[in-house]
Amino acid sequence: MTYWVEEKEKNVHGRVYIIKDRCKQCGFCIEFCPQGVLKQSEEFNAKGYHPPKLVETDEKKCMGCGFCQMICPDFAIFVEREEEEDGKK
């Protein structure tokens, strides 16, 4: 049942872009990422908030669903989807 889903996960990734200084640390992207790829960073942005960053463990965990960019109220994060032929790039 899960076999083909995992296949798909392997083939589609997202590249996460963050505009750190726009972040207001609402935490939505971190909380609602279906893959849990984001976490709060230690660094401060210009406004004194902690912008998100990728969880380092698995670079390819992001599936590029783009939900973070839909629920970010501050135009601070976006994702570019990339599809791979054979799970490698």
Binding site: R15, Y17, I19, R22, K24, L54
Partner: peptide, 24 residues
Amino acid sequence: EINATQHPMDKYLRADRIPHIWCP
């Protein structure tokens, strides 16, 4: 993650007025 300065929706925004006034 990649640091960016421009957002894909910026082209529809009055970029000189962002960040907006709304609370976190």
